[in-house]
């Protein structure tokens, strides 16, 4: 029972992070019909830039209570601007090019970000420990399992950001514009929607969420591997799987997919074998693709002939 509950907490925290990252994949896919393979690197930069800002602000040893919101806003803002810049420089010129060209460009961007990150003027090759911005302690004990403050923080903050995004997509004018562009870009344009602007904002929002996930990841797990390390790519990839399982392009599906992947990985590791924890996720992906290729929450697209 203790293992079950402890795993539950871990799974929920990890799943929330996957969900946050998955939203970025799904949002960009929604408006551009393209998989942004550089998204996992934005997540990595979100974690590293949080570390960097913490150092610059002198909070490496002992941080004030307002440190977390400040770093959160800085990291989200930084990654949003970075993503908009990437979109303008790398993807926008390819708006009318075949999808494959954009996809390959995204892989190029991904490699560029990873390898720029290891430069000593940027983040360097040394792994780092993220200073604790919050006073982490056991908040409450549930059936013998101590629930850490940082786990609660991860789940609540991730949940709040997801709700904010939900509201934005389904209740605001910007969200209507995003859904209109997603449905039919040309018609949206003819109805006066500035499609390029909507695409830029979408990139920005998705990347801000990835940055938040990066900061939360750093807070929860502490150690930051160098930017070209495979850990980052693997985390990003699993978040991408979450988006696919939830039905790519579907905002709610991405969150559900993320949580599902988190549970799968954690319970698989706890009860089956921890060595295979990356395998479960991809096995389920294959299963979902075989049975319901449009994802659990996706709708099958009928090819027009």
């Amino acid at each position: 029972m203790t293992i079950f509950l402890q795993t539950f907490v871990n799974a929920l925290a990890l799943g929330s992070l996957y969900g946050l990252i998955a939203l970025g994949y799904t949002l960009v896919y929604g408006v551009l019909r393209f998989i942004n393979f550089a998204h996992s690197d934005i997540f990595m930069i979100g974690a590293w830039i949080s570390f960097t800002f913490t150092g610059w602000l002198g909070w490496s040893t002992g941080a004030p209570a307002y440190a977390l919101p400040v770093i959160l806003v800085l990291a989200m803002g930084f990654c949003a601007l970075l993503a908009v810049a990437i979109e303008q420089i790398a993807y926008k010129p390819l708006r009318k090019a075949p999808r494959l060209n954009v996809l390959i460009t995204a892989i190029g961007v991904s490699l560029f970000l990873q390898n720029t990150g290891v430069l000593k003027q940027v983040f360097g090759t040394q792994p780092q420990r993220m200073p604790s911005l919050v006073n982490d302690h056991v908040m409450f004990t549930l059936a013998g399992v101590g629930v850490q403050f940082v786990d609660v923080l991860v789940v609540l903050l991730a949940g709040a950001l997801m709700l904010l995004l939900q509201w934005m997509v389904f209740r605001t004018r910007l969200g209507r514009a995003m859904r209109a562009v997603s449905f039919d870009e040309r018609t949206a344009s003819l109805m006066g929607i500035n499609v390029n602007q909507v695409i830029s904002i979408t990139f920005g929002i998705g990347s801000a969420l990835a940055a938040a996930a990066g900061l939360l990841y750093a807070l929860k797990y502490g150690s930051l591997k160098q930017s070209a390390d495979a850990t980052w790519v693997l985390l990003g990839l699993k978040a991408f799987v979450a988006a696919v399982i939830g039905g790519i392009g579907n905002v709610r599906g991405a969150v559900a997919g993320g949580v599902l992947i988190g549970f799968l990985e954690m319970y698989g590791a706890a009860y089956l074998s921890p060595h295979l924890k990356d395998v479960y996720v991809f096995v389920v992906l294959i299963g979902v693709l075989l049975v319901k290729p449009s994802g659990l929450f996706g709708k099958a697209v009928v090819e027009k002939v």
Binding site: R173, R176, A180, A188, I193
Partner: peptide, 11 residues
């Protein structure tokens, strides 16, 4: 929402 989307032009 179809109509509201188009109203966005003047917002």
């Amino acid at each position: 929402d179809n109509v509201r989307t188009a109203c966005g032009v003047r917002a």
